[in-house]
Every structure is written in C-alpha cells, then in structure tokens.
C-alpha cells in the first residue's frame, strides 16, 4: 500500500531493527515555572514503545498525561522546563532546535487531539488542511499533495473523498471531523501516533468506529499507537499494555490482560471500581475514593496517593515508593500492593 511506503521513506534514514525501542522516554520531568510558583507536572516517567505496539496511558485529569504527550511532541509552551531524555530510534530529542524538531514532528511522531472542532481551521477546506500538512514535510507538488490527501481521506474511510476534499469542517459531523484530524496526523506516515483523548468528545458508537479505524490503520501502516485516556474500559478493549499515571508519576505498568486479572496498585483499583459496569444492578452505589489529586506545586515526601489510599500505612507517608519491576513485565510503585492472582 502506498501509505506503507510513505511511512517507510518518511522515517529517518537509520531505521534500526534491533533491540532498541522506537521511542524511549527515560526519567522525563516537566516543570512549569511561573511567578505563582512551580508546577511539577511530570515527575520522572520512563517507558518505551516498540514499533506496532499499542500502549495506553491512563489517569485522572491533571495527572500529567497531556503534558507528557506534549513533551514527546516537543510542543510544550515556553514556560515548561524539560529534563530527562526522549529518544527516537536512539536519537536524543530533548534540547533539539526548532528547525530539527519540525522534521521530527509529523514524520516521526504525530498527535491527534481531543477536540476535533478546535483542531481544524474552520475557514479552510478540509482537503487543503491535509494537503498543507503534507507539503510542510514532504517534497511533493500541489497535485501530488492533492492526490495523497484524497488517498488519506479514503484511508480514514470518509465516503466520497473527492467531494469531501472541498468541504469545510462545519459541514462534517464530529466523528467525521475527528477522521480528518487523524488523516492530518497520518499525512507523513509517522512512526508513532499519539491519540490524546481522541474519542472522549465522541459518543459510544462513533468512539467505537474511530478506535477500530485507529487499530486498522495501525495494522496497515505499522505505526505504534500511544492512546491517552481516562477510561480504563477503553484501554482494556484496545491496548496491549497499560501505563497508569497519578500526580505526574507512573504508578503501575502491565500488559493489559495481566493488569485486569489482578491489579497491584490501589489507585488503579480505584479507577477500575469507579467505572459503571454493564453487568451491575441498577442503583448500586459505586465504590469510590474521596479527595482530589494532590497539588502539583509541591513534591510530596511520601506516596502521592497516600491521602486517598484505602491501604495506606505509616511507611507510605514517610517515603515515596519507587516504580520497580516486581514481576516479569509488571512494574508498580506501592509499598502494600494487592496480591490477587500473584505468584503463579
């Protein structure tokens, strides 16, 4: 397929197929400096993505998911201070100049945002917006860009792409607009696609359509998919691995199946319990934890979840648990994890 070749020649020249992961984030920290004080939005997260993998980052709002994604895209506002490392195919991306990053964005990593209304320019035809994204990065002329744009529209399963090319965003439904946004993100065949709450604004049927589209596209083009969401249910249905974030830190990481077979970290359990289940009785109260995520302007001494944790003990308040690998492929940061299904 043409898109696959585009993905191939769009990637940087030294695509190494080897043990090194596609995108490797280590000890990433993002701090926002302002007169009102510092906000430690991301406090040292590490993970990696392999080609073709689907990874989900889960967490409440304000846990630092978007800021992490923005750091990976290098589109943080100027007030942000980034330390740590983000390696794409072994190449360090933190501290690169704007010009070098321009090529990295779009061709290596692309992003789909939450709100399709606001990610599209209302005064521009959708086709032109896709074509523009193509010509910014690839050496194609107008006609070729036009053809490629139509091909992309077809790829995201928009019926009658030749006609839709000339329509304006307001003439499309919410789901259709999100498809256009995805087409823009895919324009240059990125190796990693970040979908930040890409379906949160949509209703269930559209959400299912868009998620299926994303997974199909992933199969076709071999991109890695990093989906960011606050909905564990969505992650369970679509991701291979799940990372749970809380207060700027990764608190648990596991393959999806194992995670749901036995959660270790109490926060993950709380997230899971709070989802209304299709199989519960009506009017049953949901088990829910009180409180709110901590203020990120101070780094707490102990476990950030301690004030809300049902399992909390004194040592949790004294010392923050580090994220460690405790079982094959399973990491968590907790002194008193649940043990369901452990030890087999």
């Amino acid at each position: 397929m043409a898109s696959a070749t585009a993905a191939g020649d769009a990637a940087p020249p030294d695509v190494r197929l080897g043990p090194s992961p596609l995108l490797e984030v280590s000890d990433l920290r993002v701090t926002f400096h302002s007169r009102a004080g510092n906000v430690y939005a991301v406090q040292g997260i590490s993970f990696s993505i392999e080609p073709g993998q689907t990874l989900a980052i889960i967490g409440e709002s304000g846990s630092g998911k978007t800021v992490s994604a923005q750091a990976m895209m290098a589109i943080l506002p100027r007030t942000a201070h980034v330390t740590g490392s983000i390696r794409f195919n072994g190449e360090e991306m933190v501290g690169r100049s704007e010009r070098e990053l321009r090529d990295y964005r779009g061709r290596c990593v692309a992003m789909v945002f939450q709100n399709p209304e606001r990610s599209l320019n209302p005064t521009m035809r959708v086709g032109s917006q896709i074509a523009e994204a193509i010509t910014t990065h690839l050496p194609l002329d107008r006609k070729q860009a036009h053809e490629r744009a139509i091909e992309l529209l077809r790829m995201v399963r928009i019926p009658a792409p030749e006609r839709r090319f000339y329509e304006y965003p307001h003439q499309l439904s919410g789901g259709m607009r999100q498809r256009v946004v995805i087409a823009i993100a895919l324009a240059c065949g990125p190796a990693v696609l970040i979908a930040d709450e890409a379906t949160t604004a949509l209703d269930v049927t559209t959400q299912a359509q868009i998620m299926d589209l994303l997974l199909d596209l992933q199969e076709e083009t071999g991109t890695a998919l990093l989906m960011i969401s606050h909905d564990l249910g969505l992650a369970a249905s679509y991701a291979e691995d799940v990372i749970v974030m809380y207060a700027g830190k990764v608190v648990e990481r596991a393959p999806t199946k194992e995670l749901f077979a036995g959660v270790r970290m109490p926060y993950t359990q709380a997230l899971l319990d709070a989802i209304p289940r299709i199989d519960t009785q009506p009017h049953v109260l949901l088990p829910v934890i009180g409180g709110r995520p901590p203020d990120l302007s101070v780094i707490p001494a102990g476990c950030p979840f301690a004030p809300r944790c049902p399992e909390v003990q004194q040592d949790c308040r004294d010392q923050a648990p580090p994220l460690k690998q405790h079982e094959p492929e399973r990491w968590w940061a907790c002194w008193h994890p649940y043990r369901k299904g452990a030890g087999q």
């Binding site: 269930v204 049927t205 959400q207 969505l234 369970a236 749901f260």
Partner: peptide, 12 residues
Amino acid sequence: ALLNSIPSPDPT
C-alpha cells in the same frame, strides 16, 4: 448495535 459498541473493562 449500541450495546455492542461499549468498550468493556474486561480485556479477556
């Protein structure tokens, strides 16, 4: 169809 599009929190 609606019931079918619910993502389930059970990955199995």
